[in-house]
């Protein structure tokens, strides 16, 4: 399975992360997205006329949408990430998979503007990003009240992986995560999963120091 990949792209990172979590080995084909704009060159445009990355190639199958790639990796190697199949759970997964595009357009757009000087209305991108974050915070809080730590149920699914990267990288686009405690807990839960991998801007969890306790002499 070959991934056309850019190391700084949150959408490419979704696929790398899902592959790591589900134990799938990817063949990485680095794409010079910046500064070379290789994704707009003839070789990649032939593969994906949409001119975007990631692109996932597996035999005859060519995927250009990251949500489809997450579904494919999970179905192939780790079906538990697709949820239990219960109607409500399935619906929630689809709901958040679709929602993740709003994060890409808003927070992702703000990040490209602030970091790699791509054109855009930064005020509108940030405002839309904040609106999406508020919705996500409310959604995660409601889940918490139902006893669920993740977006669709009490275990992570492809919906969480679809939403996580652009949220975690919101500060790169000048959008703070400070106002969203439930998002931060959710992010922490995802980062503590076995086989989690990081990307630039998403740091690994550092070991917590031991609980402070009074010195025996003082007790």
């Amino acid at each position: 399975m070959r991934l056309y990949d850019y190391v700084l792209s949150p959408s490419c990172y979704k696929v790398r992360l899902m592959a790591a979590l589900s134990g799938v080995k990817l063949e990485i084909r680095p794409v010079d997205f910046h500064p070379g704009a290789e994704h707009r060159g003839p070789e990649l445009m032939a593969l994906n006329p949409g001119g975007s990355i990631p692109i996932l190639e597996d035999g005859d199958l060519i995927l250009t949408e990251s949500s489809a790639m997450l579904g494919y990796l999970a179905a192939k190697a780790a079906p538990a990430w697709l949820g239990s199949g219960a109607p409500e759970e399935t619906a929630r997964i689809q709901q958040w998979l679709s929602f993740s595009h709003r994060l890409t357009a808003s927070l992702g757009g703000a990040r490209l503007h602030e970091m790699l000087l791509r054109p855009g209305d930064i005020g509108a991108l940030q405002a839309n990003g904040i609106a999406a974050l508020r919705e996500l915070e409310a959604g995660l809080f409601e889940q918490k009240m139902r006893g669920n730590r993740f977006l669709a149920c009490d275990r992570p699914t492809i919906a969480d992986i679809a939403c996580f990267p652009y949220v975690a990288l919101a500060p790169d686009g000048g959008v703070s995560l400070d106002p969203y405690p439930t998002i931060r807990l959710w992010s922490r839960a995802l980062r503590s999963l076995d086989n989690f991998i990081e990307m630039p801007g998403i740091h690994r969890l550092h070991e917590l120091k031991p609980e402070p306790r009074p010195c025996p002499d003082e007790a």
Binding site: V7, L8, P200, H203
Partner: peptide, 13 residues
């Protein structure tokens, strides 16, 4: 390029 961008983007935040 990706190696150096990775390093620098870790610094950026």
């Amino acid at each position: 390029i990706h190696f150096q961008q990775t390093i620098f983007l870790q610094d950026r935040s």
